[in-house]
Write a protein that binds this DNA or RNA. Sequence first.
DNA 1: GGTTAGAGTATCTTC
DNA 2: TACTCTAACC
Length: 668
Amino acid sequence: MIAASKIDSLKNHLIKILNKEQFNAVVETDGPLLILAGAGSGKTRVITHKIQYLIDKGVAPSGILAVTFTNKAAKEMKERVQKLVGKQKKGMVITTFHSLGLQILNKDIASLGYRDKFSIYDDSDCMKLLKDIIHDLKLPDDVYDPYELIFKMGLIKMNLKNTFFDDDPNIPKIYENYQKNLKIYNALDFNDLIKLPIELFEMRPDILEKYQSKWKYILVDEYQDTSLMQYKIMKMLAIHHRNISVVGDDDQSIYSWRGANSTNITLFEKDFFKIKEIKLEQNYRSTGNILNAANAIINNNQSRRSKNLWTDGESGDKLYLYEALDEEAEADFVLTYITRLKNMGYKNNDFGVLFRMNSQSRPIEEKLRDCNIPYKVIGATKFFERPEIKDILSYMRFLANFEDEVSLNRIINTPKRGIGNSTIMSIMEHAKETNSSSYNTIKDFVRLGILGNKVTPYLEDFYNLIEKYREMIFKPKNISNTIMKLVEEIDYRGKLLAETKNPKSVQFKMKNINQLYQSISNYEKNPDNMNPNIYEYLQRVSLSTRDDDNDDKEEVCLLSIHSAKGLEYKVVFLVGVEEGLIPHDKTLEETGTDEEERRLFYVAVTRAREKLYMSYPKERMKYNEVIHKNISCFISEIPEELLEKINIEENLAQENDLSLLLEKWGKK
DNA sequence: GGTTAGAGTATCTTC
DNA sequence: TACTCTAACC
C-alpha cells in the first residue's frame, strides 16, 4: 500500500515535469524498450528518472545496471541519480562498458587461464609491443605501421573480420604473436576488456546466470556507439528477463572507427523482438535557428531513421560565421567574442570551444592565457599519457606485475643507468629461450655475472632498486609515499634537466608528477576505497581520462567534438570548420563517405544552446609549411537565411570598448 | 657496448 | 613542433 502511494505520487510528479514521450519512456520499465532520443531531448533526464522510478517501485538498487560509453557520461549520470534518490543508490552499478568488463574479469579471469593482477595496456603500450613483434619477425617497419596494426588487431580480435584481409599472411602471424605476448606479459588491451567477459560467459554459463539474475533491469545509454561485442554482452545479460532499455540517437553515432555500429539498433529489434519504441523529438536545449540548421545538415544523410527535432522556444540569433586569415586570427576572433559576451553577462563556463583535433586547442589556449581567462582543456594530452607520468606509472606497473615487459622496457634504462639496447636484447632473448621472464633472467644474469664487469653492476643496481621498492609499495597505504621516494632516488628531476635546455618544462613536468602523488594519495585516503592497493589504482588510471577536477568551476571549456557529445554550452565556438578537418581527409579516404563526418558536425552544432560561432582559418601552418584551407562543405548545407557572416574589423569599430584588443594586434 | 646529436617524419576522434 | 631513428662518438 505504502509503496503504491509512493509510486503514485512520483508518477504525478513526473507527469508534471516530463513531456508525454519522456514520461512513457520512464514508466515503461518491463520488457525491451528502444528510446530514440534526438540531441537535447532530455535523454539523461529520462534515464535518471527511470532509475528513480524503478527504485520507488521497489527494485533493489543492486538489481540495476546502467552502462554508458564515456567516463564523463557515467560520472554525470551517477551524480544526477544521486541527487534524485540520495543514498539509496548503494549497490547500483553505473559504469562504462570497459569498467564493467574489468569488474567481471577481476572476479573470474582465472577461469579463462589468465592470471590475476594483470596490466592494462593502452594504445601506446600496444604499439610498443607491436613494434617489438615487427622487429622480432624481421618484417619491414615501413610497411607494417604499428598505428595501423593496432586497428587491424582490433578488427581481428573483435571478430569484425573473420577472414584476414589483405591476403597478407604476416597479419595473422603478427596477431598471433601479439596475443601470445599479451598473455605472457599478463596484460590485456582495451578490446580484451570487452571480449574476454564474453568468452567467460560462454565458457561458464553459471557465472553468466549469476549476473543475469543479479541485474534485473539494464539501461544502456549512447546506444548508437556500442560495438557489436558490447552489444553482445548486454544481450547475454538481458536476454532472459528482457528488461532492457536502450537510449540512443543514430544521428549522433560518431565512433564507427572504433567499431561502433548503429546497425545494432536493428539487431536489438531482431534479438529482442516485440520491442517498444519511443521517439523523443522535442528539443529543450537549442534555439530554433540552431535546431533548424542542425536538421538541415543531418537531412543530407541517406542512412538514418526519420526524426525531426523541434522546439517551442525562440528562434534566437542566427549562426555566425567568421573567415579568419590564419589560426592566430581565428583565436583572436574567439577571444574577442568571449570578452564581448562576458561584458553582456555571460560567464566563463558558458563557453565551449570545440574542435576536430586536440592539437587545435593550442592557439586558443595561448590567447586565453594572455587574457587571463581561466580555462580547462578536456581530454587533450591526457594526464596519464604524459611521458613523465607514464614513466612513473611504468615503474608502478612493473612493481605490480613483474611479467609486464612493456613497462620493464620503459623503465630499465630510465633514467639512463648504463643498460643499453644490446643488453636489453640479450636479456630478452635469453628469457625467451629459457621460457622465463626477463626479470628472472636479470636476476640470474646478476647472480652469475654473465654480462661482464661493466654492465653487471648497473643491472644489479636496477635489480636492487626494484626489490627495495617492491617491498615498500605493498605496505598498507604506502603507495604515494613509496613513489615519492622512488622518484627521488632515481633522480628523475635530474633526468629531466639533462634532457632539455628549457628548465621551465622540467618544472611543469615535476608539477605533473606532484599531481600524480596527489592522485594516489587521494585514492589511498578516500574512505570509500575499502582496501586501497596498487592494482586497483592502476586499473582505475588505465580506464580514466583524468576527470578528477570539478566541472563547476567558472572556466572556459576547450574540447574535441567527440568529447563534447552529451554536453552543452550557452555559447559554442566551433573552430576549424574547413575541408580536411570536418570532413576529415583521412576519414573520407578510409570510409568513402562523409556521413559520419556530417554526424560529427551535427553533434557540434547541437551542443549550442543560444549562440553558435563557427570559424576557420584561410591559412594554416603544418610542419612549417603554409597550407591554404577551404571552408567546410557542410556550411553550404545550412540555409543561407540562418547564417550571418561576421566582419570583425567592422564590428570592432562599432564597439569602442574593444579598441584595446585592436591595439594588441597592432603590437604583432 | 652505451650515449648523444642531428636528421627525418608525422597520431584524428576514445576506453 | 615533437618525437623517433640512425650514425658517429665516447
